[in-house]
Design a protein around this nucleic acid. Structure first.
Lengths: 142, 142
DNA sequence: ACAATACCCTAGTGTCGTGCTATGATATCC
DNA sequence: GGATATCATAGCACGACACTAGGGTATTGT
């Protein structure tokens, strides 16, 4: 019952970009160092986020990455789905293309996984990057 | 964001045993065939459930497995935790032995994973095997 | 112009967990 | 005592994961 590190690292990076939103592009190396991640690996993750339209990039010297829209408009669920694929505790209740069980008759345990899926999605979709920034600020005040 | 088949298959098997609760031991082969699972593989899963005290066994001819207590006393979460380990979307928020991030300072994304974890656990712990049996019965009536 | 910076892309690779299979031993019933 | 069934351990093919390697391309500052 694990998330891969992709979602974990990716969210860290997106949070970093959210904290620096509006300050122009941030270089990959900066994010990687601040969040303590392998920069080459993070490059691949952020490429997925870029193709999904969540971040934009500027090439060349002084280039870097920045959020494609405001932190309040990016939900954690958007990030996770991009990096981990559709939320699905088991394959037959995937958010996309659920497939069908090999047994034709209705599988009662499916209702469990549907509820788990909806629970996870509900949490992830209720939190935006702006929420994380606000929480981080409040934490530092204490 | 996937459960392995262990939890999936294991819950199917436990549901099968719950439906036949009180009818004496059910052989592994019977369960495996009814739930369309590899019986040798299921054997390993049910061994874990036995060691965890969720099912009991009777050896020899006419032997088999049966639930250690009433279906209403066994939560889906008990089954999943036994087969999949403690619920933890990422390692640092495991229900048991959370470890600590390599970064000493507080990681804000952790609050996300904690909420996801609690969401999953909440769903799994709110459903008992008896609930599943009741739902299965109601479904068949329609 | 040109070097430095930093994004962009494709391949490859070691490690580990998953999802089994294989083989044999032990206990119980008829 | 044989048929049935649980118990236990070992091994193994496959794929995903978490990177690393090594290049190419765009932009900037001098």
């Amino acid at each position: 019952m694990r998330l891969s590190t992709r979602g974990h690292y990716g969210l860290k990076a997106m949070f970093d970009l959210a904290q620096n939103y509006g300050s122009g592009p941030i270089s990959l190396r900066t994010v990687a160092e601040r969040q303590n991640l392998s920069d080459h690996y993070l490059e691949q993750l952020i490429a997925m986020l870029r193709k999904a339209g969540l971040v934009k990039s500027m090439r060349g010297a002084k280039g870097g990455y920045f959020l494609a829209r405001e932190p309040s408009e990016i939900r954690v669920g958007d990030v996770i789905r991009t990096l981990e694929g559709p939320i699905a505790p088991v394959h037959c209740v995937s958010e996309i293309d659920p497939g069908n069980c090999n047994k034709a008759d209705y599988c009662i345990t499916r209702t469990v996984w549907e509820r788990v899926r909806d629970g996870i999605a509900g949490v992830l979709d209720s939190i935006t990057l702006a929420d994380l920034c606000r929480e981080a600020e409040e934490t530092n005040k204490c």
